[in-house]
Design a binder for these strands. Structure first.
Lengths: 202, 202
DNA sequence: CTACCAACTTAACGATGTTAATTATGATAA
DNA sequence: TTATCATAATTAACATCGTTAAGTTGGTAG
């Protein structure tokens, strides 16, 4: 029965090759160049072979989004772990969220800026145990700690969603309008975060 | 020589018909359904005829964006004119910006959420005298008034861009993730704006 | 050896934006 | 009135996209 297993391994291997190719294209050429045919060409199979391993393109994107969210989560966790107050941890986490989006614009776009029917975005972000869920929970938890400390009478979930919106705003706007005469990038990001968090102090 | 003028009028008329059809499709069926062929079908001409009146699809979108920005500008101006302090005017303006985006998601998406090569977005937004420029200038001016009053030592342009990012963030996130378990919409918007502007007070 | 089954490919469909070649229209000049 | 000729519009076509159906291959089991 080792043959069946070998087949299984081969099958899983090609599946991984497809995801690897998709990721490479996404990062090297951008999400606009990521097509079933470009993936097929890269793995040297016919385009339709991919459909034997994935239901459709959205399913491939779903996996790339999961990957992206995992990396973003890791970056945010790492950034937070260097800070020594709840407020600074939250601040560092948001900064890491933004930095990730700007460092990996194509990854950010496929996870937060495209409506991938039923498959990606919300479904992926919300699924119990998904990295998207972990990511949002991380921010919720850190915000909770800040609100505990400050004692501000605010609805935590509303504030959380507003913080997310503010952070997403600067990332998506910078990505969408790269030619706009923005002020110096780091200054802009710092200002964006400062203004976002000002209301939580005291 | 009246013939030449009549031709001119006919030409201009069909050009308007194309824009009208495009607008109708955008509003009735969404930006995903807006194609050269769907426009052609609506005006009962062949798809390629459109290219005799517009260089390409982007040029059509450019005009729809201009229209959208004009309406958004009007909504923001009107909202501001009801308020009696610089701060409240700025606040009402941002609220109108957000409300417009959520009321006209397809118009918002084509102007702020797609990168239309050289044609739309930034080019349109920046062009001297364009409505996009007027819109941004309106916010800059109102922010200026607020900063004058409060005397806060902040860089106006940085704060302006951050305010824009915050406002864009809530609009684009709500549009992109309609299925997320958001808190009640009005409450979320108010919280978003409150947190955004908190830093400007005192 | 043959029959089957899985893996894979080719062909094709219906979209998209866009270009080139072709036809129809309609005003003007002979 | 008819012939000419630019303009207006169309048809055909290309390259791209995601996706489905049908066909081909090759290895394994009976």
């Amino acid at each position: 029965m080792g043959i069946v297993e070998r087949k299984e391994r081969q099958k899983e291997s090609l599946r991984q090759d497809i995801l690897d190719a998709a990721r490479e294209i996404l990062l090297a050429e951008g999400h606009a160049k990521l097509s079933m045919r470009s993936i097929a060409k890269r793995i040297e199979y016919s385009p339709t072979t991919i459909y034997l391993y994935f239901k459709n393109k959205d399913e491939i994107l779903f996996h790339l989004c999961e990957e992206a969210l995992e990396r973003q989560f890791d970056a945010m966790s790492a950034a937070a772990s260097n800070e020594f107050s709840p407020f600074l941890r939250l601040r560092a986490t948001l900064r890491a969220y933004i930095d990730f989006g700007l460092a990996e614009p194509d990854r950010y776009q496929i996870t937060y800026m495209t409506d991938m029917s039923q498959y990606v975005s919300v479904t992926s972000v919300l699924m119990e145990g998904s990295f998207g869920n972990k990511l949002l929970e991380l921010v919720r938890r850190q915000l909770h700690d800040v609100l505990m400390e400050s004692g501000a009478p605010l609805d935590p979930e509303s504030v959380f969603q507003a913080l997310w919106a503010h952070s997403h705003g600067i990332v998506s706007l910078l990505i969408a309008c790269p030619d706009f005469p923005w002020v110096e990038r780091d200054k802009l990001i710092e200002t964006t975060i400062d203004m976002s968090l000002k209301g939580l102090l005291r």
